[in-house]
């Protein structure tokens, strides 16, 4: 899996490409923006072709590290295969999920300024 990081109006955007499983999950867990409790991060999952419980675990643990868990991580552009696994594990309850990255970033920055 490869992670390309960009940022827009102070929000970090991580675009994941490939497989998010036990082998690649550590790469996401150790990402600087993910670890930083103050940083709100949008994770773009459009190019993720497979995710399993280790991938879900990595994303859930990322939101645990944020100061306000429900707003710290915003998810964008889930394809069917990824959304199905979120639904199986009920993890979709923990995140705001957008089908468009810009919308996710706007939401994230509004939440960030509201709580700052």
């Amino acid at each position: 899996m490869t992670i390309t990081e960009t940022s827009k109006i102070g929000i970090a955007i991580l675009s994941l490409y490939g497989t998010l499983d036990a082998l690649s999950a550590p790469e996401l867990r150790n990402n600087r923006s993910i670890i930083d409790p103050e940083k709100t991060v949008v994770i773009d999952l459009q190019q993720v072709d497979f995710i399993d419980s280790s991938g879900i675990g990595a994303i859930v643990s990322a939101s645990r590290q944020k100061r306000q868990p429900s707003g710290g991580i915003v998810l964008a552009c889930m394809n069917d295969r990824v959304r199905k696994v979120f639904e199986i594990t009920n993890a979709q309850k923990l995140f705001h999920i957008f089908d468009d990255t810009t919308a996710a970033v706007d939401f994230a920055s509004s939440r960030q300024s509201a709580s700052a």
């Binding site: 419980s53 675990g57 859930v60 199986i88 594990t89 993890a91």
Partner: peptide
């Protein structure tokens, strides 16, 4: 696993059963 507690594991067997 109870999702509200932001669990990090235990999902595996849940997915298999589902």
């Amino acid at each position: 696993p109870d999702i509200e507690s932001y669990p990090e594991n235990g999902f595996g067997l849940l997915i298999i059963r589902k």
